[in-house]
């Protein structure tokens, strides 16, 4: 008897099976009518995804690529793996600088400008403090992010090389960018154009303060 019900009610094609499944949102409570019994049967099928985890598709959608890029950037920022691609060199005029130890493609992440991420007020206090010591170089990078002024203070000597990259307003090959990684923001340097191995890395410090220019004319003419 049930067999008859089954064959009549059941669409033969598998494609229709899901609909049958979806129809059944009532897993019965003791009372089992014949119809319900039939539907329940098909609902007992478990999903294969319960056993085999979904992997990233090898064909990527635009959104996936974007996500992957963010993921890649996060790894790069966290692991500081690019530090080893930068070589420190010393120039008699400018002091220390950085040369590319490998080539970089346009828009590729090069290195993070690593230091203390501080707000504007604190930065100004520190700046006053640092000004008392003429031997300290300028390693404070001021920028605006989400309508707030921030500063990365890299005055303290660290192993990170982002702070050693020299300035050029006329022919920079890097540009700064603020990125959000795991809900904190980071100041990173990305390639402004394709960069060859061995080129000196340069970016525009962006400082146009007339007083600073008067002290350091290289801010605009290098």
């Amino acid at each position: 008897m049930l067999g008859c019900v089954e064959t009549k009610r059941r669409p033969k094609r598998l494609a229709a099976m899901r609909q049958t499944n979806n129809n059944n949102n009532a897993v019965t409570t003791g009372f089992i009518s014949k119809r319900k019994k039939v539907l329940e049967d098909s609902n007992q099928n478990q999903k294969i995804t319960k056993f085999f985890a979904v992997r990233r598709s090898s064909r990527k959608t635009g959104k996936q690529l974007e996500e992957e890029e963010i993921c890649h950037l996060r790894d790069a920022v966290h692991s500081c793996c690019n530090e080893k691609l930068l070589d420190i060199y010393t120039c008699p005029i400018k002091g220390r600088g950085i040369k590319a130890g490998s080539s970089f493609k346009k828009n590729e992440f090069v290195v993070e400008y690593k230091g203390d991420m501080i707000d504007y007020t604190e930065a100004k206090e520190r700046e006053m403090e640092y000004a008392k010591n003429p031997n300290l170089g300028s390693y404070m990078y001021f920028f605006e992010y989400k309508n707030k002024k921030w500063c990365v203070d890299a005055t303290v000597e660290t192993k990170y090389k982002g702070r050693l990259i020299n300035h050029s307003a006329l022919r920079p090959n890097l540009k700064t960018k603020v990125v959000e990684v795991d809900s904190s923001h980071h100041l990173i340097l990305i390639a402004k154009r394709d960069i060859e191995e061995g080129e000196e890395l340069l970016y525009d410090y962006g400082d146009r303060d007339p007083l600073n220019i008067a002290h350091s004319p290289w801010l605009v003419n290098s």
Partner: peptide
């Protein structure tokens, strides 16, 4: 253009 989910079969 098929957006598929690849399953990792252990």
């Amino acid at each position: 253009d098929i957006d598929v989910e690849h399953l990792g079969i252990p």
